[in-house]
């Protein structure tokens, strides 16, 4: 916490957003960003910290969303229990996916997660007795006072803050260092005694949990889900948010999520280009700024306000030297 004032101002602004947001649509957008961020915060530990390029988290999002819709909607269970259940379901699926695939080298892992996303879409269509197939499912809302758009936003804000706090704790303590070490050099990580698979798997299961929670909240925002909601391109989008924000940071991916979600919604030409725009952004960032946009801010700040480098030259002092020598001879 280098800037407690800025942090408090941002927190206050987020908490009071329903009062100053221009219209319902902007509030909806803010809630959507929150739901995405819940997933991306967990994914950030996998992609940004431990360096595992998972492009298939949209599959886990779909599992969370359908889990919530089936448990709370079809079976009429209390939505809070359903929320917890979809988080647990996401974590379980993350475990089952991560256990074999995290042993694979980079590209193989990315392909395994890609395949997972496609399989989930396929199964959602195939098991139409459970998921409604191509027709989709309607999703119940939370009970009062969370059934209004503003209440829903506050609920999402609370969950997102909690998840952010958890990831921040992981990132700044020993776990985060270990994950970064796994990202930068597996051999070094093994040599200094980091349990590589265990660390990666723990991060991945946590990301599955947040994806399940994010999926449930996302489903509530959408209020009706079909397989078309969870296209592979959405998984690309999550991934791009993190890469653009910068790996190994939390603020960077958050800003990436906000900007990338809001930009196409606020400008129509970009929305038409859609995923082409995300691909272009990803390419530009990888080629020009592999450290992410956050690095650009750092460079700009250095230019504006260069760090003061303390230099304390010590002037020679012959008199003290001769005194000391004489004292030594005596």
């Amino acid at each position: 916490m280098k800037h407690p004032l800025a942090f408090a101002a941002a927190a206050a602004a987020l908490a009071t957003l329903p009062f100053w947001a221009g219209d319902q649509y902007q509030l909806h957008l803010a809630a959507l960003i929150g739901a995405y961020w819940i997933l991306i915060a967990g994914l950030n530990l996998v992609v940004g910290f431990s360096g595992q390029l998972s492009v298939g988290h949209v599959g886990l999002l779909a599992i969370g969303a359908y889990g919530f819709a089936i448990v709370a909607g079809t079976h009429g269970v209390d939505p809070w229990i359903a929320l917890a259940a979809s988080g647990a379901l996401g974590a379980l699926c993350g475990f089952l996916l991560g256990l074999p695939s995290l042993r694979l080298p980079g590209f193989y892992f990315a392909m395994a997660t890609l395949a997972f996303a496609l399989i989930v879409t396929e199964l959602v269509l195939a098991l139409d007795g459970l998921t409604g197939g191509g027709l989709g499912l309607s999703v119940p809302t939370f009970p009062e006072p969370f059934d209004t758009p503003a209440g829903n936003y506050w609920l999402i804000l609370a969950v997102a803050s909690l998840v952010t706090l958890l990831t921040w704790n992981v990132a700044r303590l020993m776990w985060g260092r270990g994950l970064i070490c796994v990202r930068d050099s597996v051999v070094t990580a093994q040599a200094v005694g980091i349990p590589v698979l265990h660390a990666k798997l723990a991060a991945f299961v946590f990301s599955g949990l947040t994806a399940g929670l994010g999926g449930a909240l996302f489903a509530v925002i959408q209020s009706y889900i079909t397989p078309d909601t969870f296209l592979f391109e959405l998984g690309m989008f999550f991934f791009v948010c993190i890469i653009i924000g910068g790996r190994g940071s939390i603020l960077g991916p958050f800003l990436g999520t906000v900007v990338l979600t809001a930009l196409p919604e606020l400008s129509a030409p970009l929305a038409k280009l859609g995923n082409f725009f995300y691909g272009l952004l990803l390419l530009l960032v990888v080629l020009l700024l592999p450290e992410g946009i956050g690095r650009l801010f750092q460079i700009a700040m250095e230019r504006l306000r260069p760090r003061r480098i303390e230099s304390m030259p010590i002037a020679p002092h012959p008199q003290r030297l001769t005194d000391a020598i004489k004292a030594g001879q005596r």
């Binding site: 360096g51 995923n275 390419l283």
Partner: peptide, 23 residues
């Protein structure tokens, strides 16, 4: 030297081509 940047760059190019063809 970062070994997985190529995955990102080719993925980005593939997405762009696919979307361009779709449009």
């Amino acid at each position: 030297s970062d070994e997985h940047l190529w995955l990102l760059s080719t993925l980005a190019l593939a997405t762009m081509v696919q979307q361009a063809i779709a449009l």
